[in-house]
Design a binder for these strands. Sequence first.
DNA 1: CTCCAGGCGCCTT
DNA 2: AAGGCGCATGGA
Length: 290
Amino acid sequence: MLPATPTPLSHADFKVKSYNLAATLDSGQAFRWTIQNNGWEGVIDSRWVRLESISSGIKAQTWPPATDWGWLERYLQLDVDIDVITHSFPNDPPMNAALRYTPGLRLLRQDPWECLASFILSSTKRIVQIRQVIQEICQRYGQPIATPDRTLKVFSFPSAQTIASLSESDLRACKMGFRAPFLLSAARRLCEGKLHLDRLSELEISAARRTLMEMPGVGPKIADCVLLFSMEFNAAFPLDVWMQKAITQLYFKGKRTSLSRLSAFAAEHFGPNAGFAQQYIFHYIRHNPH
DNA sequence: CTCCAGGCGCCTT
DNA sequence: AAGGCGCATGGA
């Protein structure tokens, strides 16, 4: 007798508590989610996905229909107990304010290549412009993806192989400017096997970070984003201009402090889940700039 | 028009 | 070690 094959389903409901879907999908860690009539539509790998917050958790729709949903549970990190994480945070006024401001804020587990490429493209750009460039390279060089609505045109994120086969001017045509040679170089290194992104999680965080930073155009901040948003390094603490301002204001009384000092303070103060703490503070300061 | 953006590389002290 | 500057592009 043949093993039973699950019937493919295009819908599923996931039971989860303390999950702020809107804040999580729109917090600057992923760039391809858009609000569409009371839900969020995006692409995960080669699937079209629609997510909606419901009282018991999250309602999901995908196309083509899926027989197992592990890929989505992993992407959304549904097995993470966020209360355990947030209870590990330091108990100080700024941290508590950030926690109260966006309860249920989460980290996603994205595809490492898409994450690396996205953040290479992020430097000195506003989030809306990062989204525009990413949409551009997906439309030009991604694969068309099936959706329930045939009038809806959606594309996958182009693979490293695809990007590696392009020219610098192909990429510059997507308006990424001086970031084009960096993206091209990253794609070609991966294709040449000089760096295996899927092996970095076997390393210590410092070694994984150093390895990422060997790539041109990848410095401490972008490396930390990749470690935090696509791998298992919850201690990674991306220090962008917003976070530098936030930490300086909230913990150093506004006194000018070197980046290395701020970085050392963050690692010591926020501990093993510093990356989660970073996400709460980042979201808080972005919505309450001063 | 000018200024600046989820940085980085390179150049000075 | 720390600080200044240019870099493409587009929107305020």
